[in-house]
Simulated scan of single mutants.
Amino acid sequence: MFSTGERDSIRERLLDLADEDPAVVGAAVTGSHALDGGDRWSDIDLVFGIEGPLPFAMRRWTDLLYRDFAAVHHWDLPSGSVVYRVFLLPDLLEVDIGFAPAAEFGPHGPAWRTVFGHSAPPKDGQPSCPRNLVGLGWHHALHAWTCIQRHRWWQAEQWIAALRGQILALACLRLGHPASHAKNAHLLPPEVTAPLNATLVRALDEAELTRALSAATAALVAELALADGALAARLAATLGDLRDDANRVVDPQIDC
């Protein structure tokens, strides 16, 4: 595992190299290090403003990361005009470098600290849309149920876990916390998170998966009821069929 000293040294070396690169007209630190300094496990998050074609600059920087920093693997995450290239270095250090056209170099949220260059005016980040979170919730519940009917246990477990993520996101949004990637789920009160313990899948069999799906569906409806009672009632009436199927599988007293 990397040390904080090693991580900080690599971040400074990358920024120095960026300052020497004529194609890099701006550089910024993003993520936790731009806000509160991060912690022992924080990775490296940078954004470079690029003058000229992004692919050419990205190829040069990728070669550099492999040659001088012994990168193990990388992949890309596009976001609008910016491409974030995500590198894995030895000792489990992740380095995320966003390559932005020079005109688009600027913050999309509060986690931004310009190191050099001129950044564009801040842009509002795209907030999580409650309608989409709700839609993903019932979508995941329905697909989990379908996978159970098909005896695809692993896929069903994946959808149930994804449904739990949407419930956490809705709760974060309702309580005024950023909703993405469960980053603020630890701030949610116990009365919100405790019921979600029942949504954890403890075994890959039909009875357990249907029980967990029933608990997750109930938790989704309960969360919705706190923000939109009418919508919660409509979805409860429809998703109740999934819970009824779960009860028929779990309860041995009911003749299927």
Rank of each mutant, 00 (worst) to 15 (best):
residue 111 A to V: 05
residue 152 R to H: 15
residue 201 V to S: 10
residue 200 L to V: 15
residue 118 H to T: 15
residue 188 L to G: 05
residue 201 V to L: 04
residue 168 L to M: 08
residue 188 L to A: 01
residue 98 G to Y: 00
residue 200 L to Y: 06
residue 174 R to Q: 13
residue 145 W to V: 00
residue 98 G to E: 00
residue 216 A to K: 05
residue 172 C to T: 06
residue 190 P to D: 15
residue 159 W to L: 12
residue 181 H to M: 12
residue 213 L to Q: 08
residue 198 A to H: 12
residue 99 F to Y: 13
residue 204 L to H: 14
residue 199 T to L: 01
residue 180 S to I: 11
residue 156 A to D: 08
residue 205 D to S: 11
residue 186 H to A: 13
residue 216 A to H: 02
residue 137 G to I: 03
residue 113 R to I: 02
residue 203 A to E: 15
residue 166 Q to M: 07
residue 188 L to F: 07
residue 190 P to L: 14
residue 119 S to E: 14
residue 102 A to C: 09
residue 175 L to Q: 13
residue 135 G to S: 12
residue 165 G to A: 13
residue 101 P to T: 04
residue 163 L to F: 08
residue 173 L to Q: 15
residue 168 L to S: 11
residue 161 A to G: 10
residue 174 R to I: 00
residue 186 H to R: 14
residue 199 T to E: 04
residue 129 C to S: 14
residue 202 R to G: 09
residue 207 A to T: 13
residue 206 E to N: 06
residue 203 A to N: 08
residue 118 H to Y: 02
residue 133 L to N: 05
residue 209 L to W: 05
residue 172 C to W: 05
residue 116 F to N: 10
residue 146 T to G: 10
residue 102 A to N: 01
residue 214 S to E: 08
residue 212 A to Q: 11
residue 124 D to S: 13
residue 138 W to Q: 12
residue 104 E to V: 02
residue 112 W to H: 04
residue 170 L to Q: 09
residue 201 V to A: 06
residue 214 S to R: 13
residue 136 L to T: 09
residue 167 I to G: 01
residue 205 D to R: 08
residue 117 G to T: 07
residue 196 L to Y: 02
residue 101 P to E: 02
residue 109 G to K: 07
residue 121 P to V: 11
residue 172 C to I: 04
residue 206 E to T: 15
residue 169 A to W: 00
residue 212 A to I: 06
